[in-house]
Amino acid sequence: MEALYAITTGILTASGVYLTLRGRTFPVVVGLTLLSYAVNLFLFSMGGLTTHGAALVGTNENYADPLPQALVLTAIVIGFAMTAFAIILAMRARGDLGSDSVDGSRTDREDPRENKA
């Protein structure tokens, strides 16, 4: 299970980093989302992976660490809010700057829809 878990986290992180480095705001937002998924998975595993063990002391010999579960919940909530904000911001930037390029320049690629109008 550890290998599968590690590979999943790794692929998510790699995809997230790749997309975050793209030049347009939509892939960047998706990249950040993937990155935050990867981070949540990573955070979840930081207390060690335990199977068939509830996070309760005393009911079972083999119990999971409850702290990462609490931390990851906080991280998910914060990450969710931040993603929502980033999407709205990307929309606003598209509207205000007339381009969805991250540096706001219109010259690098013309939008075909604007040429028609």
């Binding site: 981070v39 949540n40 990573f42 955070l43 595993s45 930081m46 702290l67 990462p68 931390l71 991280a75």
Partner: peptide, 8 residues
């Protein structure tokens, strides 16, 4: 968060 995960 990654740093915190590693440290914890």
């Amino acid at each position: 968060l990654i740093a915190l995960g590693v440290l914890y």
